[in-house]
């Protein structure tokens, strides 16, 4: 067999083994840790420990960005924003692992001063050394070339881009357009420009952004979830207390698992489906290693 022929055969074979090859490579499957408990700080620590502890992600001297959802002017119990205790615990874990600086921010929808305050997140982190809770400054956005299907380029927040570790910390809630808003959509908080206009093709757009900008760790706050009238809620009747924290390095897997908390299948959510098809992560629950911490 000459070289030319060999290449042809291998190339031809690869058409058939494509799926199999994928299975082989994904044989391990992403790990998703799920912790439950009314003590949210302790529950968060368990979920992180099950993945190997924060020291697996944060090395001494590194700069970490923790990106909760601070989008709305709502009190924590309304489940429109990330649980301040969970945010505080994640930040504490980062510091324990030797982080030089932890930055916490979000691009809010309501007035940023009110959101930072009434979400309880500003107060929860107040006075912690080496922790910054800052309002965004428009000069820090940088144009990033995505070459995606929906977005050719977009503006992302400089401090998120320059951080050594990016921890995505969304709250699990209903969303009027995308069904649910979880980890993939939480990344919109570092996007600049006219974010509303990406709603036209939100599934592909979110996949475009998440394909280029990777979250090193996704921790989904499901201590309480918003089941209707999201993403803003406002009525406690729409809130369910689950006391759960989901963590994974695979953002799609974390989102997929969190979807089941709403009684839905991962494939029901177009954002998750699109991301899976584009190879950003695992969506099939049976292919994940789900660890109940």
């Amino acid at each position: 067999m000459d070289r030319r022929r060999f290449i042809k055969v291998v190339g031809f074979c690869s058409l058939f083994v494509h799926g199999w090859l994928r299975e082989l490579l994904a044989a391990q499957g992403p790990m998703v840790s799920v912790a439950q408990g009314a003590n949210h700080a302790e529950t968060t620590r368990r979920a992180i420990a099950a993945l190997g502890g924060m020291q697996r992600f944060v090395k001494p001297g590194q700069t970490v960005v923790v990106k909760p959802n601070i989008g709305w002017d709502r009190a924590p119990e309304y489940a429109a924003t990330s649980n301040p205790i969970v945010v505080r615990t994640v930040v504490e874990e980062c510091l324990k692992s030797g982080a030089k600086k932890v930055k916490v921010f979000d691009r809010t929808c309501n007035d940023p001063r009110r959101c930072y305050r009434n979400s309880g997140i500003e107060a929860a982190l107040k006075g912690m050394p080496n922790v910054e809770v800052k309002h965004l400054e428009e000069e820090r956005y940088r144009k990033v070339f995505l070459n995606g299907r929906a977005l050719k380029e977009c503006e992302l927040y400089g401090e998120a881009l320059s951080a050594d570790v990016y921890i995505n910390l969304p709250v699990a809630k209903h969303h009027s357009l995308s069904g649910l808003t979880l980890g993939m959509k939480n990344v919109m908080g570092i996007m600049g420009g006219n974010r509303g206009s990406i709603h036209k093709h939100i599934n592909q757009a979110l996949a475009d952004v998440n394909a280029v900008f990777k979250s090193h760790l996704t921790i989904i706050d499901a201590t309480r979830i918003l089941t209707a009238h999201g993403p803003q809620g406002g009525s406690l009747a729409d809130v369910r207390v689950l006391n759960k924290i989901i963590a994974s390095t695979d953002i799609v897997a974390a989102d997929a698992y969190a979807t089941t908390l709403f009684g839905l299948k991962p494939s029901d959510i177009a954002v998750t489906r699109t991301a899976y098809r584009r190879g950003l992560g695992e969506m099939n629950l049976e292919k994940m290693r789900i660890v109940h911490a």
Binding site: L177, H199, H229, G233, G234
Partner: peptide, 18 residues
């Protein structure tokens, strides 16, 4: 007008029952 999704207005409406 364009027959594509948007719904940013619904998302932001602060009334709890929308």
């Amino acid at each position: 007008a364009k027959r594509t999704d948007c719904i940013v207005c619904e998302e932001h409406c602060p009334i709890p029952q929308k």
